[in-house]
């Protein structure tokens, strides 16, 4: 930061976040929607952003940290451009979801919960995607892919740059 008293020009992200604060100002139960919006803007929740949210919503950082770590949706570290979610719900479990997990690990070289170094993929397993009729299922970003077999996984993931 420069030493003069002028304010640093705000980044695009910070300007976006400003709009979110304006939208939820004075509203009850705003914390989770604000965190969701902030994560949409930044891709994850950096510590600086959590401090900013704390100051603006007048909620202690400790409470915010508690909420962020409670819900599976929030992330404190950068995420890959493409999010791979392999379903391990009941229906997928009995139809061989675990084999799909192995195939993903083999294809992109990371385990459940990890992100590739080039930030191309993040891989996580989830409990149910609600497309049980097509088990085993995986989602890449917002696309659902059903009736998978291990050999379909690598060519499919290759399409997501």
């Amino acid at each position: 930061m420069c030493q003069c008293k002028c304010e640093e020009p705000k980044s695009n992200e910070a300007l976006e976040l400003e709009k979110v604060f304006a939208k939820y100002e004075g509203k009850k139960g705003a914390l989770i929607p604000v965190l969701q919006a902030a994560q949409d803007i930044y891709g994850y929740l950096p510590a600086e952003v959590l401090k900013e949210i704390s100051a603006r919503l007048r909620i202690p950082v400790s409470k915010i940290y508690g909420v962020v770590t409670f819900y599976a949706q929030f992330h404190l570290n950068p995420r890959g451009r493409n999010i791979i979610r392999v379903c391990l719900g009941t229906a997928c479990h009995v139809r061989g979801g675990a084999k799909i997990v192995e195939a993903v690990t083999k294809a992109v070289g990371i385990k459940d919960g990890e992100t590739t170094e080039d930030l191309r993929y993040t891989f996580e397993s989830v409990a149910c995607l609600g497309a049980c009729g097509l088990a085993p299922v995986m989602m890449v970003n917002d696309d659902t892919h059903g009736r998978l077999t291990p050999d379909k996984v690598a060519p499919l993931l290759e399409q997501y740059k």
Binding site: K28, G29, L31, I32, L35, Q36, V67, Y71, F74, A127
Partner: peptide, 25 residues
């Protein structure tokens, strides 16, 4: 209200805690 990924929020008191912006316990 969009949930944030916690199965226990299907329990009614936890769901309401989550709407209020807290941990869904």
């Amino acid at each position: 209200k969009e949930g944030a990924g916690a199965f226990v929020c299907g329990e009614e008191t936890a769901l309401m805690a989550s709407i209020e912006g807290s941990r869904g316990m």
